[in-house]
């Protein structure tokens, strides 16, 4: 299986994420209510709805430009922690893409790694802090290992996805060091981090989209 993602494909993927997030209102809102301020779903949903509204403009762009624009849109629409974190991620990813018009699996890996680094830098955070990083980091690591091991595209993508899922679940027992959950007496232990959930949704959706097409 070979992977090719151009602006058109990426927009299709964005549409699927928007749907997935729209449908997760109660669960994600509740998670952020328990450990944070309850707005994470509203923030993410607003961001992806904005991307849908800008569809015409986005698909007409080169991939790198598109990522840059997505970053700006998310950053300014969403605000909050997730806005600036995803914003920084997409801006850095845009640089990694440069003027390429398509991503193959290697570029995808580099893009995801760039996003990870941008988030860790902006958030002054590491894996284990009970944040969205805990879904992205293991996903990226397992994708890299899979590619190094020479696994085929489909298998490598499954590794990416499973890394995100396992990482998301691992936040349940973590004590929060960043994000609003760290204000809780028990540091949010016992609850999955909402940012890790929506991060995981995005990665899952990407993998499912790529495997279907």
């Amino acid at each position: 299986m070979e992977i090719r993602i151009n602006s058109q494909n990426y927009m299709e993927y964005i549409e699927l994420v928007a749907k997935k997030i729209e449908a997760s209102k109660d669960y994600v809102s509740e998670l952020d209510s328990i450990t944070g301020d309850g707005d994470h779903w509203a923030n993410m949903n607003m961001g992806f709805q904005k991307l849908l509204e800008s569809k015409q403009e986005l698909v007409a762009m080169r991939l790198g430009q598109m990522f840059q624009k997505i970053g700006m849109l998310i950053m300014s629409t969403v605000g909050g922690s997730s806005g600036v974190l995803y914003g920084s991620a997409y801006l850095k990813a845009a640089k990694t893409i440069g003027d390429k018009t398509e991503m193959d699996i290697h570029l995808l890996r580099d893009v995801l790694e760039a996003e990870l680094n941008a988030i860790m830098e902006r958030g002054n955070a590491k894996p284990g802090y009970k944040t969205m990083i805990d879904a992205l980091y293991p996903a990226v690591i397992r994708l890299k290992e899979a590619i190094e091991k020479g696994l085929d595209g489909h298998e490598a993508l499954q590794e990416l996805k499973q890394g995100a899922i396992d990482g998301m679940n691992s936040t349940k027992d973590m004590e929060a060091i960043r994000g609003r959950a760290c204000y809780q007496a028990n540091k949010g232990v016992g609850h999955i981090d909402p940012g890790a959930v929506t991060m995981c949704y995005q990665i899952e959706t990407l993998v499912e989209y790529l495997c279907k097409s």
Partner: peptide, 12 residues
């Protein structure tokens, strides 16, 4: 001003 309970974005 950010959105309700959400920090304002850098451009703001």
């Amino acid at each position: 001003a950010g959105n309700v309970f959400a920090s304002p974005s850098p451009d703001r």
